[in-house]
Design a protein around this nucleic acid. Structure first.
Lengths: 244, 244
DNA sequence: CAACTTCGTGTACATTATACACTATAAGAC
DNA sequence: GTCTTATAGTGTATAATGTACACGAAGTTG
């Protein structure tokens, strides 16, 4: 976790000295923010300014406040550290191995976040600390157990993208079918047949044609579609199962 | 959580008084132990002996110790409170709403556990406190937010049983295909066709015939099968996907 | 040995998945 | 405005899988 983002060094509690009779670990949230570039899944990292792991890159995150829920804490830290808001956010897994933070017992509730990368390309770089998107296969050295957390987030995305319409969270509101196919190919790491993919997607009836086309391309522009979330929610209630 | 199982009442920290500058919630683990009866999914509950929620039923669980991992803590609490060991155990979700424990901030990492109910029918009742299996549709009043935790565990089981061979964790090592079908019918809450189910299961090649048959039934005895875990793991590495 | 209960089996049809290649359209260069 | 280039957009035949459906076989009990 990157809790001490304002530079105030955090000192661990003296071992074995607790005010109450039960252990009191520190609890943080960490966010694995995934975004889709033209050819890659990318993850948003911030560079640590303090020890331990000074200069190492880490997941955005920080301490959970006394009066906030875990999801709230994750959204707050995201907003504070990366200016990212209004994204798909879901709890991933809680990491609590005793040695995962050299300063003492810190349990972190990890979240995974799907962001429309294009929305945040600029903003991300303007924060006080270094912030950047990194391709998943070219990650820098990471603080704590954050590499393992990212790995689990990607596993989860891969597992879930086929059975839930979460891929759309990575695309702009209007997208071409080619873009959508590219997304699935990148996440699933295998090529898909263009005609079969389109047949399948359109037969679900969840993406609807708009009257817009791609702009600024140097060839025939593709028709743009949008995801019909309301229809999806209606169908869900009727036992419909999304699957690609 | 049922952390104070030995009757020592736990008092909450005075609000706003922390030794360090960041909040220090208590962290517990709670286990949703599911078992399969003839006609029902059941969950294992223990009855609380102390306030709050004295006399209410609750999930087995307790505080995470300073030097143990979360999974370890869950297994330890299970062993201590219910004598259950060597079961399928997987982290479920972390619940941390500020008001979920009336005594103060307690964050709980929930686990779900699949147990062969027949193994634990007797042992479970011998613990110092009241312990019992409850059908999911006839739960007693539950402490804290434990009803919500159980609900999420069942959702997870339902979602996962079709894509991972975890149903076998609920059956004895040797089982009939009728038992296996019954399991899926109970978990998925819909009837399955006998011939189609057997075709499907056998075509996966993961359950193998043994030379044993059901004992002590008052009709033709069914052949018993076992799950071939090694074969499953081999196939997994080759990209095989389990699905029912 | 009759009655009962569950076991174990196959086929026809519908649906879905897969493999595969060319024409249409728009932009850009000249 | 014509040619080049790049991607968009489309259909069919075959294989695989899913679904619906009913009855004789085998073992137990009285």
């Amino acid at each position: 976790m990157a809790a001490d983002k304002k530079g105030a060094a955090w000192t661990p509690p003296p071992p074995g000295r607790h005010v109450y009779e039960y252990p009191r670990p520190a609890v943080t949230v960490d966010c694995v923010v995934l975004g889709l570039d033209a050819d890659d899944l990318k993850v948003l990292l911030i560079q640590r300014g303090v020890e331990p792991f000074r200069h190492a890159w880490a997941l955005p995150g920080g301490f959970v406040k006394d009066d906030e829920d875990l999801d709230e804490a994750a959204r707050r830290e995201l907003r504070e550290e990366t200016a990212i808001e209004d994204v798909y956010l879901e709890q991933l897994y809680t990491f609590g191995a005793p040695g995962r933070d050299p300063r003492g017992r810190v349990i972190t509730v990890a979240y995974y976040v799907l962001a429309k990368l294009s929305d945040y390309r600029v903003k991300a770089a303007t924060d006080a600390e270094n912030v950047g998107w990194f391709a998943l296969d070219r990650l820098p050295a990471l603080a704590f157990d954050h590499a393992a957390i990212i790995e689990r987030a990607v596993e989860r995305l891969r597992g879930k993208v086929r059975y839930a319409p979460i891929g759309f969270e990575l695309l702009p509101p209007r997208f071409s079918l080619t873009q959508l196919q590219r997304l699935y190919e990148i996440v699933l790491e295998r090529p898909l047949d263009k005609r079969n993919f389109r047949k399948k997607i359109l037969s679900l009836g969840l993406v609807v044609e708009t009257d817009e086309v791609e702009q600024g391309v140097r060839h025939r522009a593709a028709r743009l579609y949008r995801f019909d979330r309301k229809k999806y929610e209606r169908l869900l209630k009727q036992g419909f199962e999304f699957a690609i």
